[in-house]
Simulated assay, not measured.
Amino acid sequence: MAKEEEKLRILAKTDETKGEQLVFTAEGKASSQPEIKDFNIPSIENPELKFDLYYKGIQRLLIANLPKGKEHKKSRNYIYEEKNTFLTRGKRINEKGIRGGDGRMGYIIDAEEMLQIVMDWIMQNGSMVELYNTLRDLNVQRGHGTSRL
């Protein structure tokens, strides 16, 4: 009976704290804190911004600054693999050629970071090796491993 009364007391207290949520301290005492809206929640996704970041930013800069021609296709693919692995948060192309994710639809924060990496590379007049190493090291650091290519 005492347990049931305790449950009812907790539930009643929850109703009193509109705009806040009930939490329990490490000592087992009930307290309230601001609703989830006050927590650090990522911004709402924005399809137009994703499009602009990916196509008008990252891709446009890479196409303009990576070497052109058939003889450089393989080296461009190495860069694109690392870029897309980063943008899909670790989804690498498998042995069947399937990634299982689309870098264009990834998180805005990741696309903004990738755009900054590419812009820094261009501004520093970096080499393909430098760009590849930067992207590969970032992927390894985040637990995405290395490419099968």
Rank of each mutant, 00 (worst) to 15 (best):
N133Y: 13
P42D: 02
N40P: 06
I58H: 02
I117P: 00
D38C: 06
M105Q: 13
I63M: 07
E45C: 05
R136D: 04
N139V: 02
M105R: 10
I117K: 08
V118N: 00
H72N: 15
N46V: 04
S43M: 08
L87M: 06
N139W: 01
R92M: 09
E20W: 13
I122D: 13
A111S: 14
E27V: 12
N133V: 11
R92E: 05
F39T: 10
S43N: 14
I98A: 07
L66M: 08
I122N: 03
F24D: 01
R99D: 03
Y78D: 09
G103Y: 00
T14H: 07
I109P: 00
F51P: 01
K96V: 06
R60W: 01
Y80C: 05
R99E: 05
M123E: 15
N65P: 02
Q124I: 07
S31K: 15
N46S: 13
I93L: 14
L66A: 06
I41S: 09
E27G: 13
Y132P: 01
L8F: 04
R60G: 01
I10F: 08
T85E: 05
D38R: 13
K7V: 12
I108G: 02
Y78W: 14
N77F: 11
L131P: 01
A111N: 03
M114E: 05
K83R: 15
K70L: 09
K83A: 15
S31M: 14
G100K: 06
L62I: 11
H72G: 03
G143M: 09
N84A: 02
E27K: 15
E16N: 04
K91I: 06
R99W: 08
I63D: 14
V129L: 14
E82Y: 02
